[in-house]
Design a binder for these strands. Structure first.
Lengths: 331, 331
DNA sequence: GGCAGGCGTGGAACCGGTTCCAGTATTGCG
DNA sequence: CGCAATACTGGAACCGGTTCCACGCCTGCC
């Protein structure tokens, strides 16, 4: 029993396919009589238009693609919440989700999108596309918005990571800390850069206060809680350990807290810890952190993208999300 | 500059469109010479086939739909991880994500899918479709797999919630508790049922041990941490409060822990708490819980779905995921 | 009454693939 | 050498929508 097509409806309602199409698309150029007949027939046949066919002939799919490193970080999920929420509010766009964990997957995802007929626009979260990839996407005329990543040719919504690092430094310095450790990401093939920028901000903040940054207190590794824990244990068992640690993300800060607990250090007395992001967990564990409005960045990213889909000629913009220190129990 | 089509390639390579199509689909019926010429032309033009067009003519989209109540619960995310991971391993399927928060969205999602041409199969997480919805999906011949939801007509992967409740009861009874509270979900318009079944299991476990369940110790409300906290505070400030609480989910257990802390109750001495699910947070907060392999259910759900797509005639199966009590610090 | 203009309509052409059939060249075999 | 089977190939028809053009009819105006 094949699904009914627009031609079935037309035949049964005694009209042309053009008229059925016009009814479907709310064109005013249909007589009340014909409209009514078509409507009834559609109900009788339980006819639903094929979105694939519509996509092919219209050249639009009413779908946006979202490219995320899904697993790597708690912050991504929080942003996704904003994305999904905003898209649902819009109503008529579907969401194609691309998880990118490896450089290979990443290349494949961009290659797929290089032909722009799958999605009407692309939201890329926490991944910086290469110049080549950007060029390919632009050649295709595909609207793209970056969240938590920067490229001069594309609209983006970012935070000032360096300023965030400075905020963390100031917060810890203000509590009398001078030996401040840093736990962050090792350079990754996916091209995350925020960790390094936050480290730079930390250094700048220290220098501004006349404290010389120490390379030995900065440790980096793959982004994960357990890895951060291992790194923090190394920091804390040094001969002259730091009295405070700035972690490049909340997820890593949790690892630091675990290390402190494992080594019997009291927080915040023996060790102060400040994270970055303010994911949901941070509040639960009462972690002091540099807050960025994750969810809002997702919402805002979708808004920029929808605007870009409507008007693809607009120049790329950069929006800066605000950073604030949320003081809780770990400092 | 229009994107090149298969006809552009054919013309430039001096072959017919049939030959190009055969090259694209790795048909053996192409001479080495022609194949080579087509391949080169494809590279030169940077030609990428249109998946929309392919979807239309093949009647398959290489896309699976995933319907989730995205926000409602931590467990959903963990399952999604499994889904995404397994789908990525497969490689050639895309993921269309449908978030369903309200009854209205839910109806809309199912209506959309009623015409089965958007996706090749549907994975529904934690939502029980109505008989009408099931009928519509079946009429369309769309393969569907449910995860954490049951319907006799569809393949599903579930846990025995009643048995899980009994496990929780036994665990607490074994530690000497007799007054055991329950914090769970109020009946929701989306038709979640697991909370009630877990409560039933708790009661059954108590009765088996000769303890009479008390209605007054069972409280229910919307599924959220804060709501659970409020409910737990009510329980704990009763004249004769429970010495242990079984929460229908880890998220709610966290609310119970917050309530205990706010009221100065020590855990587990004054109050034992056991949750359900074993989400990532549970481990971090050292919450005792009835573990279900969330991620694996996502993986397995996709596997069942892919199998159903390959052979749509197979009869629906039910797979039961295993439950175990993970003992940590809250009991 | 004749004509311009607008409304409503039907359906061919098109979107960009796949499928399949008909046709040609080559090979193998008796 | 003749014939059939085999290996390739080209392109029409099709998937199910949208778009647009041509056409008929009605209305209003001179």
């Amino acid at each position: 029993m094949r699904a009914p097509t627009i031609r079935d409806v037309a035949r049964r309602a005694n009209v042309g396919i053009g008229t059925v199409s016009r009814v479907l698309n709310d064109s005013p150029l249909v007589s009340a009589d014909a409209r009514e007949r078509v409507r009834r027939t559609i109900d009788e046949l339980a006819y639903r238009p094929s979105s694939t066919a519509r996509g092919l002939s219209r050249g639009r799919t009413q779908t946006v693609g979202v490219v995320v490193p899904f697993f790597t970080s708690g912050s991504v999920l929080e942003r996704m919440r904003g994305v999904v929420e905003r898209l649902n509010r819009e109503g008529d766009y579907d969401l194609l989700l691309f998880d990118v964990e490896t450089a290979k997957q990443r290349a494949a995802a961009f290659r797929d999108f290089a032909r722009g007929d799958r999605v009407d626009g692309l939201l890329i979260i926490s991944i910086r596309p290469s110049d080549d990839e950007v060029a390919a996407l632009q050649r295709e005329g595909l609207p793209v918005v970056l969240v938590d990543a920067r490229h001069p040719a594309m609209s983006r919504i970012v935070v000032d990571d360096v300023a965030g690092g400075e905020l963390a430094a100031q917060h810890l310095l203000g509590r009398g800390h001078r030996r401040i450790g840093f736990v962050g990401d090792a350079p990754s093939p996916l091209g995350f850069t925020s960790s390094e920028l936050r480290r730079k901000g930390l250094r700048r903040g220290l220098q501004a206060a006349g404290v010389a940054p120490e390379r030995a207190l900065e440790v980096r590794g793959p982004h994960s809680r357990t890895e951060a824990r291992r790194l923090a244990e190394r920091l804390l068992t040094m001969p002259d350990p730091p009295t405070a640690v700035f972690a490049a993300s909340d997820v890593q800060a949790l690892g630091v807290l675990e290390a402190a607990r494992a080594l019997g250090r009291r927080v915040p007395d023996d060790l102060a810890v400040i994270g970055f992001d303010d994911i949901e967990l941070a509040e639960l564990l009462e972690l002091t952190t540099v807050r960025q409005p994750l969810r809002e960045t997702g919402v805002r990213g979708i808004e920029l993208l929808l605007a870009a889909i409507r008007d693809p000629t607009a120049a790329p913009v950069e929006e800066l999300a605000e950073l604030t220190v949320v003081e809780r129990r770990t400092t």
